[in-house]
């Protein structure tokens, strides 16, 4: 039992970088992301007896992190965008124009991505995905992750970001389109 707990403790610590990277993508503040990661690891160590092994250690930790990050966002209140990032630039989706022709039909065939199946392929795929997520502007990434990860209602996200529902719709569209394009370019060479 003691040996099992020790092994689990070691495994928990191994996921610190992955937890921190996701926390940082959402919170965009190094100190706060580090705190959320630390609290997640502590909660996991304190609750180690409750880990039943039904989920993997990693998914268990990610579920704890999700709760911690929701708490952080609620405590910190409204998002303060970095001064370098301009909402109008983030709302500008004319960059996608080249994807479509004059009739708004896709300009080029869409190859279905080769399904990443082997361990090596999946690793490479998620490396590209993580890089694509990191490249989203802060506000766009925050909106996207609040929606897709934390499952906040669009109304809550609008008020957190202080943008209109219509602008939030554009930010979420942009995030999804940009991720699709990014994976198209970054992954589909395989």
């Amino acid at each position: 039992m003691a040996v099992a707990a020790l092994l689990l403790t070691k495994e928990i610590a191994r996921y610190r970088p992955a937890l921190y990277r996701l926390a940082l993508l959402q919170i965009r503040d190094k100190a706060a992301a580090d705190d959320a990661t630390q609290e997640t690891l502590l909660a996991a160590l304190e609750g180690i007896e409750r880990f039943r092994g039904e989920a993997s250690v990693k998914t268990w930790l990610f579920a704890i992190l999700r709760h911690k990050v929701v708490d952080v966002l609620r405590q910190r209140g409204r998002f303060v965008p970095p001064p370098s990032e301009d909402l109008n630039a983030e709302l500008d989706i004319t960059g996608f124009d080249t994807l479509f022709d004059a009739e708004d039909c896709w300009a080029a065939p869409k190859n279905v991505w080769a399904n990443p199946e082997t361990v090596v392929e999946r690793k490479a795929f998620f490396k590209v995905l993580e890089a694509c997520l990191t490249r989203l502007p802060a506000r766009t990434a925050r909106a996207f992750l609040m929606r897709e990860w934390l499952d906040f209602a669009p109304g809550e996200i609008s008020s957190d970001l202080d943008v209109s529902p219509g602008n939030l719709r554009v930010l979420l569209y942009r995030a999804r389109m940009q991720l699709r394009t990014c994976l198209d370019v970054g992954w589909d060479r395989a």
């Binding site: 992955a18 993997s56 999946r122 998620f126 490396k127 995905l129 992750l145 897709e148």
Partner: peptide, 15 residues
Amino acid sequence: REVGAYLKGEAPDTE
């Protein structure tokens, strides 16, 4: 699907 897997911690480590 893959973003969902990544966010749930179901994706392989990227480091």
